[in-house]
C-alpha cells in the first residue's frame, strides 16, 4: 500500500474511533435526559420524585363528568371529563408536597387542576400538605382530560423533569 493510502486508512480508522466514542457518550447523555417510565404493582407504594420526595400510594382513579363542591358543582366542558386520583402518603416534616402528573399510555401528561378554578371547595385537600402526626394523610389530585383518553391511563408520575439519571421514573398504578 502506498504511503498516501496508509494515511487515508489511518484517517478513516481515527474517524471511526472518534465517532464511536462521541456517539457512545452522546447516547449516554441522551438516556440521562430522556425520562422513561416503569409501572409499579397495582396499588403499591412508591417514591415518585427522585430527590427526596414523599412515599405515595394511589388508592383509586375515578372518572367523572361533574365535580361536587360545597357550592355549585363543576361541569367539565363537552368532550372532557374530570379524573379524581385519591392518594395516600406519608407526610414529611419539611413540608415536601406532591406534584404529580397524570400519564396516559401514549405518553401524554396532564398537570393538576388549580383548585381556585373550581366554583367551591371539596372535602379532601387537593395537595399533600399534611404534617407528620395528622389524622388525614389523604389527598385528592384532580385532572381535566379529554374523554377519549380516559380509557388509556397509565397512572401518576412525578412532574419534575430536572433530574438526570438513567433510572426509570416510577408510575403509580391504580389498584384493579
Amino acid at each position: 500500500m502506498t504511503a498516501r493510502a496508509r494515511q487515508w486508512l489511518l484517517a478513516a480508522v481515527t474517524f471511526a474511533v472518534v465517532v464511536a466514542v462521541t456517539g457512545g457518550w452522546l447516547a449516554y447523555l441522551n438516556a440521562r435526559s430522556t425520562p422513561h417510565h416503569q409501572q409499579t404493582a397495582p396499588g403499591a407504594q412508591a417514591v415518585p420524585d427522585f430527590d427526596g420526595g414523599l412515599t405515595v400510594r394511589l388508592l383509586s382513579l375515578v372518572v367523572t363528568p361533574t365535580l361536587v363542591t360545597d357550592k355549585e358543582p363543576a361541569h367539565a366542558p363537552a368532550g372532557a371529563a374530570y379524573v379524581v386520583a385519591l392518594v395516600d402518603y406519608e407526610p414529611q416534616a419539611d413540608g415536601t408536597g406532591c406534584w404529580l402528573h397524570l400519564l396516559a399510555v401514549d405518553g401524554r401528561r396532564w398537570s393538576m387542576l388549580d383548585p381556585l378554578e373550581l366554583p367551591g371547595r371539596r372535602e379532601l385537600p387537593s395537595n399533600c400538605s399534611a404534617s407528620p402526626g395528622d389524622a388525614t394523610t389523604r389527598a385528592e389530585l384532580i385532572y381535566l382530560i379529554p374523554e377519549q383518553a380516559t380509557g388509556a391511563l397509565a397512572g401518576l408520575v412525578s412532574s419534575g423533569l430536572a433530574h438526570r439519571s438513567t433510572e426509570a421514573y416510577p408510575v403509580l398504578t391504580p389498584p384493579q
Partner: peptide, 14 residues
C-alpha cells in the same frame, strides 16, 4: 496533507 491534518484535527477535537 489532508489525511494527516484530518487525523490531527479529529484527535485535537476529541
Amino acid at each position: 496533507c489532508l489525511p494527516r491534518l484530518l487525523v490531527t484535527a479529529m484527535l485535537g477535537w476529541l
